[in-house]
Design a protein around this nucleic acid. Structure first.
Lengths: 133, 133
DNA sequence: GTTGTTGCAAATCGTTTGCAATGAT
DNA sequence: ATCATTGCAAACGATTTGCAACAAC
């Protein structure tokens, strides 16, 4: 139980993938990006590292319509999922009043707000009327 | 593409499972409950029915820390997930101001707020100090 | 009779695990 | 030398799909 974690190239690669990410990543994406720093990296190791990072609260699971994603634990914030390009974005700010929504007797420990729709790129691409002649 | 859907016992069973549910159900739960109305029902058929119901906007996917769940499309509301008993609850009400959180140029089409913590039952069970002698 | 639907089993997807080899300490 | 960690491949659970039998129309 009292394991002594070691500092390996693979762990560093996975951490670096998270550090350089600008938003949540799927396990596959973490793998792809981390392989740049540790070419032999296996997908199983990615999952193992993610699990370890979550246990250490370094990384958090993000549920999304796209599937499970992970990101470095940051100050509190929420996400926007683009239903067109399937990318995830972090958004600043929070909504007030969420704590009072739970029924009597419920103990609210955390909350997650996710917005879905079209990101700026996709919104522009699918609504070009303004630029059309 | 112009398929003519048929009214079968299995579809009715799945619909009924949703109608009688008081909150989101996992595919497994839908199966268990629908089998009461159509004993021979197979899990594959459950998934096919759910997919069809979603396509018709009769049912919605609910992402949750517990896993994917489904529920009859109702008036807008949100959810509470109990991290102890792994049940999902619907909560009334909504938070104001979510639409303005998205960055410039983003088109917000929907939002989902989920609260996590302990439901009334579990909160009471894990905090019995008040009743302890 | 036509054709959408079913249950089954096989296939697939994402994730986890057993294990012998490897590498950090 | 010790023992955490690795990559691989097998195992796993959830979901999907091919297909022949079936049932709604």
């Amino acid at each position: 139980m009292a394991a002594k974690p070691r500092n390996t190239e693979q762990k560093r690669a996975v951490c670096r993938a998270f550090e350089e990410a600008d938003g949540p990543l799927s396990a596959q994406l973490v793998w792809e990006r981390a392989k740049a720093f540790a070419p032999s990296l296996g997908i199983a190791t990615v999952y193992r590292c993610i699990k370890e990072l979550i246990a250490q609260d370094e990384v958090q699971l993000v549920e999304s319509p796209i599937g499970p994603m992970y990101e470095r634990s940051p100050r509190h914030h929420h996400h926007f999922f683009c239903s067109s390009c399937q990318r995830a974005f972090c958004i600043a700010g929070c909504v007030p009043g969420w704590k009072s929504l739970a029924p009597q007797g419920f103990k609210v420990l955390s909350h997650e707000l996710s917005l879905s729709g079209l990101c700026a790129d996709c919104a522009q691409a699918t609504t070009p009327e303004k630029n059309a002649p």
